[in-house]
């Protein structure tokens, strides 16, 4: 959207704001990178050396970072994969099949968005523990393997698909599962990709639930491990800085790879409801 008539100085103002916002957005993270590469005797919040990789080694060896990174990858992939799969499955009948109770089910699903995880964390912990999920990666995954938001997003996408495509497949003798897989899913790719993107970002960042459900260090995800390091290495916070840098790099790389799916117009629909 390019404005045809632009007053002089307008562009300069925009660039000045752009520069300030850029510094604000990446400044703190870059400063953390500086801190992570400084040796423990260097003064905090300076640009002086000596520079070292020792913090990374320490985080890797003593902080259990290798295990935490593996766990985070497993939990994140499982959560994102299940979120897309279960939401896309549930959204199909809600968008396209007629059956008794459809509206009730949809309203109930929407109602769960009104229940914040933070409010119900205690009973959720007891239920998960009762199912044998305490201190297991499955426990970090299963309760958050689907969300009402995801179902809503997929339903919106399916509703936008023209019905005659489906009818053609139906006449060709395709069953519901077949139509879901080969007609609905391919045509809903932008929304499914956005859901996957949100799920990956959310799962990679999640602290509260893994903190509650994971007990042994071998099972920690990256945020829980970094939280532990802040306590254990209180005298050398640079270990936690190094771990934080290592935790942010994969997600940035992931995001830059899939960023073409991040389109503002999808956000309009995504936040409704």
């Amino acid at each position: 959207m390019r404005r045809s008539a632009r007053a002089p100085g307008w562009t300069a103002t925009a660039y000045a704001f752009a520069a300030i916002l850029t510094v604000l957005a990446i400044g703190p993270a870059l400063w953390l990178v500086v801190g992570a590469f400084q040796s423990p005797e260097a003064e905090l919040n300076t640009l002086s050396g000596p520079w070292t990789l020792a913090n990374f080694r320490e985080a890797w060896r003593e902080g259990g970072l290798a295990a935490a990174a593996t766990n985070s990858v497993i939990v994140t992939l499982a959560r994102a994969g299940l979120n897309v799969l279960l939401a896309a499955l549930a959204a199909y009948p809600l968008a396209r099949l007629s059956f008794r109770g459809r509206n009730t089910v949809f309203l109930l699903v929407l109602a769960t968005t009104m229940i914040p995880e933070q409010v119900i964390v205690v009973p959720m912990f007891k239920i998960a523990a009762g199912l044998g999920l305490y201190d297991s990666l499955a426990g970090a995954v299963i309760p958050f393997s689907v969300s009402a938001f995801g179902i809503f997003l997929c339903r919106q996408a399916f509703l936008a698909i023209p019905q005659d495509l489906e009818e053609a497949a139906w006449i060709d003798g395709a069953g519901s599962l077949r139509i879901w897989w080969s007609v609905m899913l391919p045509l809903a790719t932008p929304s499914l990709a956005l859901l996957a993107l949100f799920s990956v970002i959310g799962a990679w960042s999640d602290l509260l639930w893994p903190l509650v459900i994971l007990q042994s260090e071998d099972n920690f995800t990256l945020p829980v491990a970094i939280n532990r390091m802040l306590g254990v290495f209180a005298t050398n916070p640079r270990v936690a800085y190094a771990a934080s840098v290592l935790a942010v790099v994969p997600i940035i790389v992931f995001f830059l790879t899939v960023q073409r799916w991040l389109r503002p117009e999808l956000f309009g629909g995504a936040v409704k409801g």
């Binding site: 850029t22 990446i26 993270a29 970094i226 997600i251 995001f255």
Partner: peptide, 12 residues
């Protein structure tokens, strides 16, 4: 660029 903080884990 301005979306990068959104991607950054909150603990980081």
């Amino acid at each position: 660029l301005l979306f990068l903080p959104v991607v950054t884990p909150t603990i980081v």
